[in-house]
């Protein structure tokens, strides 16, 4: 995982230097590297949280406001209409709210991912190159990436936790295993987000690529991921979009947990593996780019 080998205390110092003062300096240095090597990624996460504080109001507003607005609009608005026409087992044998709520949860994770894994990453390399400052400290490029992943994971977990609490309040979670949907959503956000982070890391110039990704990938993804209606409503030649969409996999997975959506077990496993694979791929990509860009 590390681009630099683990230190062997004393070795270099003893062989390279004869005087005590130099050995002393070397020993101090070796001691000084221990904590950053071990906890470096957490220090980066600490930094992210300090920055998030400056837009804490937005974080809270979206964290609490979004579930209320969406669940209310869907649960009281659209669901009433759908259920009136199709009955209490409108879609998949459940009411519309129960059907749509786990999908909204997964979308909420995607929203956090597309906020935190894009512009802050580009900012750190380019507009306000703090990653270079971090890299001049004992932190390593890979730890900078890891720290971002840690901080976003925590923010996403809190956001999804709050969302899920509102889902309970609205009575949108029939299954006792429903809470597992929080982790399904988290995996969705991280799988998609890590790819975004990898891509954002590679951008040397901003010519609107990220805005384009938001418009052409993130927003339409909701329409093709079985969020508001089952993917099977599409003709087969359009369904492939859903199959590659992390949001579709995350949504289906969430539904398995919140209302026991019936699908073959291999498909459930495939959702998890697919999202995990995207996460690992994107993460490794971002780490690779970080090493290349910061070590010039």
């Amino acid at each position: 995982m590390s681009s630099e080998s683990t230190p062997r205390p004393g070795h270099d110092v003893a062989s390279a230097q004869s005087t005590d003062a130099a050995a002393d300096a070397g020993r101090t240095a070796l001691a000084g590297g221990i904590r950053p090597r071990r906890f470096g990624a957490w220090y980066v996460a600490e930094h992210r949280f300090r920055v998030m504080r400056s837009y804490l109001q937005t974080v809270i507003a979206t964290g609490i406001g979004n579930p209320i607005i969406y669940l209310y609009a869907m649960g009281v608005g659209l669901a009433t209409l759908v259920d009136q026409n199709l009955g209490d087992d409108a879609v998949d044998g459940v009411g519309y709210l129960a059907f749509v709520a786990p999908a909204l949860l997964a979308s909420a994770a995607i929203t956090v991912a597309s906020e935190e894994f894009t512009y802050p990453v580009m900012l750190g390399y380019k507009w306000n190159p703090i990653f270079f400052g971090m890299n001049a400290s004992p932190l390593r490029p890979t730890q900078i990436v890891d720290g971002i992943v840690i901080s976003v994971t925590i923010r996403m977990l809190v956001t999804c936790g709050i969302y899920f609490a509102f889902m309970l309040v609205f009575g949108a979670v029939p299954s006792p295993l429903g809470f597992l949907a929080i982790f399904a959503a988290l995996l969705t956000g991280l799988g998609f987000g890590a790819l975004l982070m990898g891509y954002a890391s590679t951008l040397e110039e901003d010519t609107g690529q990220l805005a384009m990704v938001m418009r052409l990938v993130v927003l339409p993804m909701t329409l093709f991921s079985g969020t508001f209606f089952p993917l099977s409503q599409f003709p087969i030649w359009l369904q492939w979009i859903g199959w590659i969409s992390p949001l579709w996999h995350g949504t289906e997975l969430s539904r398995v947990f919140t209302y026991g959506y019936a699908e073959p077990i291999w498909l459930t496993v495939a959702h998890v593996l697919y999202l995990l694979a995207l996460f690992v791929l994107g993460w490794a990509w971002a780490r690779r780019v970080a090493v290349r860009r910061l070590n010039r």
Partner: peptide, 15 residues
């Protein structure tokens, strides 16, 4: 400081 930056980057940077 008697250390090789290729192997001891974080240690050197700590000083």
């Amino acid at each position: 400081l008697g250390l090789d930056p290729d192997r001891h980057g974080p240690e050197i940077r700590s000083q």
